[in-house]
Design a binder for these strands. Structure first.
Lengths: 229, 229
DNA sequence: TTGCGGTTTTGCGCGTTCTGCTCACGGACC
DNA sequence: GGTCCGTGAGCAGAACGCGCAAAACCGCAA
């Protein structure tokens, strides 16, 4: 079990995040903190493996807190969870060794993906440490760093391109609250048929959600939305 | 140019590494250090972008040095260079935000690959920072973390020449607002196949940007444009 | 309640165009 | 004269748009 500390200045948001974490197999929530002071104390007392760290805290900036997390005997890993999307914060988080960075607000799917990637990383580390030879090969190290990036996307669907996939996914992600196939086609600049092909693929793989819109005459319209818990 | 500080307790090894770094286009060596104290001073004085950090230093362990590098005004990135292959060191280096970990002894090819990956990462960051909106998308952040893994592409510039690369790059740079593969081929005076080979390489390494042109029937055309606002 | 026509949307095969890969040719450097 | 590196030509297939048929709903009448 991966003990996780959830940090957010808004306790309702923290609760939602904690709920997400709990429903991912292999993860438990060992505490919830709403300030830098609470975070540091919780890390020292509960010894979490992972911290979901918000950056906007009332008493201190999250990235400064993060730097001090290294000073405890068993420093936790950190996934930054913030509405801050400026490059400076992202870059600094990376430099300080964050294993992930998700922008709020986000749905369950995104966090689930990151947590699973982190779980894979830990599993790989555990597998290496139990192997007879204590010496890791360069290829093992490379594999670990590659897991940091996360096997985020399925590399190559058949007959579909990565660029178009991103366009369609972003179109759905920015649509509020949902969007139809023709709207996606119009927004991206592709034909309806192509848009539908990609939407079906994304829905089948759980990246987006499908809802049927009834009411008017004719066949019900498929409306897509980004996956929320 | 990416200013690099090479750190190794053995000055001959440091010299070899410095030679490697210098021969990678885009990198310069701004200093060489053989101890923790020298490293810290050099970082403060020379402000390198990147540090090739050995772990076995006479006065202090490299990972402890690394932690203190964050405290300077412009903290550098770190690639760990060490004969230590134990999981604890590797794990801690990752947690502290190392962008790479190469085990000694290694050849030029390996270091070259890592440096190229790091250069791609910087280019990507620079491209994002010059884009009008300061707000990065989640997908952009994901891409940045994926570049940390680096194993995404084989950065072997094999079968390509430097002069042709410049020709293709300049052709894209002077095209407004974007240009197709056949147009590049026509403009430079090479075949379409060759132009495409170079364009793919440049796009993969973040020098130019790729956009798909939809609308007409048939496979969409790849249109390339230089990276900037 | 059930069946039928109308309507709108999805789903799929097909043709089209561009890409990416493979292989053979030509020049340069030994 | 052999070997290697970069290029050009040709071909399989990747990824799109078009158009039609089937699907799935609603309304209405029997």
């Amino acid at each position: 079990m991966i003990g996780t500390l959830v940090v957010d200045d808004d306790f309702r948001v923290a609760d939602v995040h904690a709920g997400y974490v709990k429903s991912v197999t292999g993860f438990t929530v060992v505490g919830v903190a709403q300030s830098a002071a609470q975070t540091l104390r919780a890390v020292q007392e509960r010894r979490p493996d992972l911290v979901l760290l918000d950056l906007y805290l009332p008493d201190e900036h999250g990235l400064d807190v993060m730097r001090r997390l290294d000073e405890v005997p068993t420093p936790p890993d950190v996934i930054v969870v913030s509405a801050a999307r400026d490059l400076a914060s992202i870059r600094r988080a990376m430099r300080q060794g964050a294993v992930g960075y998700v922008v709020k607000p986000f749905g369950f799917a995104l966090l689930n993906e990151r947590l699973c990637a982190y779980r894979d990383l830990r599993r790989r580390v555990a597998a290496l440490s139990t192997e007879g030879s204590q010496a890791a090969e360069q290829s093992d190290i490379d594999a670990l760093f590659a897991l940091l990036g996360g096997s985020t996307v399925a590399p190559a669907p058949k007959g579909q391109s990565e660029s178009t996939m991103r366009l369609v996914r972003d179109a759905v992600r920015h649509a509020a609250p949902d969007i139809s196939a023709v709207q996606v086609a119009d927004s991206v600049g592709i034909s309806r048929a192509t848009a539908q092909r990609y939407l079906v693929y994304l829905a089948r793989h759980g990246v987006i959600e499908l809802r049927l819109q009834y009411g008017s005459t004719g066949r019900p319209e498929h409306r897509y939305r980004p996956r929320r818990g």
